[in-house]
Design a protein around this nucleic acid. Structure first.
Length: 293
DNA sequence: CCACAGGGCGGCA
DNA sequence: TGCCGCCCTGTG
């Protein structure tokens, strides 16, 4: 991997096979990246606005600088990890097409708090709605960061800010029955200072048990938070799509936790990566296409 | 009007 | 423990 720092952008060469913006931002792990007219993606991470695109096998980061690349983006995009190697570890005949379909997926290292709230919102919800609710929260209760391409951007609201809101105010953001869960999460994270951020250092089992103490965080949401913000790659979120694809491809069924344990036997320490390729494939409707053939 | 979508809770056996 | 009705909201 080679990084070139230019005046108005940063160019990354040599990882194009393992970095596909569309697949990274649309595989269901994040909700604050949006497609621009020119095919690039713009997103908000903490209090930064970043634009990502790919041209001629070069990854281009705009609206940033070297310092932020080294301090934030390198870790956020998981650039220290060899995805080619991971894919070769989990590759089998059954996964061949699935890994090819989702080529260039990377698992982002996202903020624990934002990820927790985002996936509480995801319960029994659709991606478009989830994005809308997160946008409502940020626009109304986050901090104004600045403009990019004539659009205004806001940070994700802090635990303290959301804790200061009433359940009804949260409902006005179209959170629905999840409002009380968000309120509970904000209370816990505000009250037990540092609690949420320490989970990253703990074992999967311990972190899983802890995160589920938040109302609205069950097995599926908890696994998402651990996988997408706490480097717990044995996490294996099982939703309806994962049930479908694990049954169809591996003939595995049962309760979510049983599916997770059986999957770990197949994929080992790389379960979380395998999950992301499988989920993306299934949720994009590729399961049905195979059925017709 | 009804089904249902990327779950989880609480009540009840 | 395990099952089941219910929950906000938007879309078809």
């Amino acid at each position: 991997m080679k990084v070139n720092y230019k005046k108005d952008k940063i160019e990354i060469e040599g990882i194009v096979e393992e970095f596909e913006p569309k697949h990274i931002f649309e595989c269901g792990q994040c909700f604050r990246w949006n497609l621009e007219k020119d095919g690039s993606y713009t997103g908000v991470v903490k209090n930064r606005i970043l634009n990502v695109s790919k041209k001629n096998d070069i990854i281009i980061l705009k609206n940033t600088n070297k310092e932020d690349f080294l301090n934030i983006w390198f870790d956020y995009f998981d650039l220290n990890r060899n995805y080619k190697k991971i894919k070769s570890e989990i590759l089998d005949d059954k996964l061949k097409d699935i890994l090819e379909f989702g080529k260039g997926i990377r698992i982002l290292n996202q903020d624990e708090w934002e990820t927790t709230i985002s996936f509480i919102i995801s319960a029994n919800n659709r991606i478009l709605m989830i994005k809308r609710v997160i946008d409502n929260l940020s626009r109304n209760y986050g901090k104004y960061i600045g403009m990019y391409n004539d659009k205004k951007y806001y940070s994700f609201p802090s635990p303290e800010k959301l804790n200061s809101l009433s359940e009804n105010e949260l409902r006005l953001m179209k959170t629905g029955f999840r409002a009380k869960y968000i309120k509970n999460a904000a209370e816990m994270v505000t009250r037990k200072e540092g609690w949420l951020y320490k989970l990253k250092e703990q074992s999967y089992d311990c972190a899983f048990e802890e995160i589920k103490k938040i109302k609205g965080v069950g097995d599926k949401v908890g696994n998402c938070v651990l996988l997408f913000s706490m480097n717990k790659y044995e996490a294996f979120p099982v939703d309806i799509w994962m049930k479908r694809i694990m049954e169809k491809v591996y003939n595995i069924n049962g309760k979510p936790d049983e599916i997770r344990k059986k999957s770990e036997k197949i994929f080992g320490p790389y379960s979380g990566f395998a999950q992301q390729y499988l989920f993306y494939y299934a949720s994009q409707g590729k399961l049905k296409e195979n059925k017709r053939k």
